[in-house]
Design a protein around this nucleic acid. Sequence first.
DNA 1: CAGATTACATACTTATCGGTACAGAAGTTA
DNA 2: TAACTTCTGTACCGATAAGTATGTAATCTG
Lengths: 199, 199
Amino acid sequence: MEKLAVRGRPREFDAQVALAAALRVFWTKGYEGASLTDLTEAMGITRPSLYAAFGNKEALFKQAFDLYEAEKLAYVAAALNAPTARGVAENLLYGAIDTVTGGECRGCMGVIAAVACQSAEPSLRNDIERRTESARKAMIDRMQRAIDEGDFTVPTDAEGITRYVLALLQGMSVQAGGGAKREELQQVAQAALAVWPSR
Amino acid sequence: MEKLAVRGRPREFDAQVALAAALRVFWTKGYEGASLTDLTEAMGITRPSLYAAFGNKEALFKQAFDLYEAEKLAYVAAALNAPTARGVAENLLYGAIDTVTGGECRGCMGVIAAVACQSAEPSLRNDIERRTESARKAMIDRMQRAIDEGDFTVPTDAEGITRYVLALLQGMSVQAGGGAKREELQQVAQAALAVWPSR
DNA sequence: CAGATTACATACTTATCGGTACAGAAGTTA
DNA sequence: TAACTTCTGTACCGATAAGTATGTAATCTG
């Protein structure tokens, strides 16, 4: 999977570095809010180089989103490995705080994309919806396992408790995008865990 | 405050009707996603008429947001009048479901505006933040009163429980924007009320 | 009626959008 | 070296963005 048989002039930039720069732009400004000028300036490459390396704006966005999921959402997969449903919720809520307030970009890119791409191309909207659905399915499966294992102290439905946790995570992202500080988001996590109905 | 001393040619459209049409456009497409062509077509007026009657795009948005708050967010003020904190939460959660899935527009305009206006003019962002802050402050005050009245069964902090409820409402709006059905949002409300820590 | 005032419709402005044609530069292969 | 391939930089494309100049139509005041 490495660059062998490189014919022609080699490219002068690192595609992964450029993609990471594009991710930051999309993350902060959303898909439609990020112009090609914003992107090329942040990536340090020219417009034709961008198209040659990544296809077009939509393809670039999807590749940036792949990178985001791989780097920033790794904690979700790890969080689901906690031994109890409470541990999962705890990991998800506190992990989200790090992701949405940690770096230079605020909020969850998935939430930003889902909310701000209402008038984008349908193919892009479908892609975003597919990613959201995939994450939700993983959470539902984990919650169903917790129910089967008797974690919950009250009758619980896997899809409902998942949508509940998801709403909290999404709301925290909205608040982070609005400027909420880490401590303020910790209040949300603490309130949620104070009433969490499982071991 | 009525139209007296009308000199000159009278306008041929109802400004309130046109503003309601503009609201629907902003609600579904966001501020930046709504073009003047979208707006004028929906409002049934021409571009110069729009500028004469409402100022410019940003001023039109603010007036549309005023209308939104007056019409669609009236339930918030009513919800805060419930006798107990549980009643407030119940009213807010179920009222939100009606607002975000009720009509032709999905999601909460405040959430859409806050998330999708990251690259809009600062004056607009400040306006949105001011509105969000105002709603949160009203909720904090109500929750503090509930705490003082002994509604809560566990030690509770007004700002924390407010941010928690707000996160749920915002998350429900995100899910509604992503196509969630009324029944799916009811799962969120039910899960939240099942663990709600007050009378 | 005449004049002032305001609204309407067409057509335009400048700026920016995503995307690309083209020519030259920088490598590999023979 | 020559031929080939691929990348880079400039300068451009048509479409659309927000906003407006201008002439005309409709109403009120005198």
